[in-house]
Amino acid sequence: MALQPSLKSLIIAGSPGSPHTLELFLDYVCPFSRKMTLVVNSVLKPLFDEGGKYSGKVKVIFRNQVQPWHASSTFVHEAGIAVARAAPEKFWAFSVLLMERQEEFYDIPTSTMTPLQIREKLAEVASQAGLTSVQVKAFSDALALKGSPNGGVSVTDELKYTIKISRQNGIHVSPTVLWDGLVANEISSSWGSKEWADFLANKVIAQ
């Protein structure tokens, strides 16, 4: 599927010109998305990045899968997009760290927090992920409410884009994985290196 230019940093592994595409629809507050993210980081990225077995053959796109039954899902995905804007090279590091700390943003921990407090906490995660003070300021500015009473924040349009991508393609839950544009239902968050190795051996046909 397509990816608008302002979100090009959501290509988290491989070259943008790679012929095969693996798309990961993940929610930052989904435990199963957390499992898959950690495997992607340790197993898949080394295979697809420069020097890896499938370098130049497969690219991986992170798709923000907002799940509104998790109360903070919108806030955490706004934050991911804000990092993609303020410090694109830190997007994946932020995403991994946020997945690791996702329990802090579950329903009960955030139930007594205001939206501003949630965003302040997300700024602390961004700082821990390696954003500079200037980048954290840009991150926070991207999450500042607009002047109109119901106008959202400056990354709202990008968030709408990611949600529309999910809706028009019938993606309902996370994690959902697409291979070359088709849902690969066989892929599970419980997969490790062997399952992914077998899958890729069967699917990668690009020379």
Rank of each mutant, 00 (worst) to 15 (best):
L178S: 07
T156C: 08
E104M: 11
E78M: 15
E103W: 01
A144S: 12
A138Y: 05
K45E: 13
P149L: 08
G52A: 07
L131R: 03
V155L: 00
S154F: 02
V134C: 09
E89F: 06
Q117R: 07
A129S: 15
N150P: 11
Y54G: 04
L145K: 11
A129C: 04
A82L: 04
V96N: 06
A71V: 10
V43Q: 01
V66E: 15
R167F: 11
S73G: 03
V76N: 04
L143N: 04
H77F: 06
F94A: 07
N150E: 13
V173Q: 12
I165K: 08
Q67A: 09
V136F: 00
A84Q: 07
L182A: 15
G181Y: 10
L98R: 00
D157K: 15
A79Q: 03
N169Y: 14
A79S: 07
N169M: 05
S127E: 12
L97E: 10
W69L: 13
T132W: 05
G170C: 10
A87L: 08
F91S: 09
T176H: 00
H172S: 15
S166I: 03
T162I: 00
G152C: 08
L145M: 14
S188Y: 00
L98H: 03
R85C: 04
P149M: 11
N185M: 09
I81A: 08
A84L: 02
A126I: 01
K90F: 05
L182R: 09
A71I: 10
V173K: 10
T114G: 02
G80K: 06
Y54T: 03
G152K: 02
F48P: 05
L159T: 01
W92N: 10
F105M: 04
A142Q: 03
Y161E: 08
S73F: 08
D107Q: 14
S73P: 03
R101L: 14
G170D: 05
Q65Y: 02
H70N: 04
N169D: 12
D49H: 06
F139N: 07
L159K: 01
Q135R: 01
L97C: 10
E78H: 11
D107F: 14
A144Q: 15
L44I: 14
S148A: 13
S140C: 05
S190G: 13
S174H: 05
K121H: 12
V83A: 01
G80R: 02
A126N: 04
V173D: 07
G52I: 01
V96D: 09
T112I: 05
L145Y: 07
N185K: 09
F105E: 02
W179S: 00
N150G: 11
H70Q: 10
E103N: 13
S166Q: 13
I187T: 05
A126C: 02
S174W: 01
V60C: 12
G80N: 13
H172N: 15
D49Q: 08
L116K: 14
N64A: 11
L145G: 01
R101I: 08
K57G: 00
W69F: 11
G151K: 05
S95I: 08
Y106S: 14
E158W: 10
G151L: 03
E78C: 10
A79D: 04
V58D: 12
E186V: 12
F91Q: 07
E89W: 09
A84D: 06
S154G: 06
V58S: 06
S166N: 15
F62H: 14
T114S: 14
F75K: 12
D180I: 05
G152F: 07
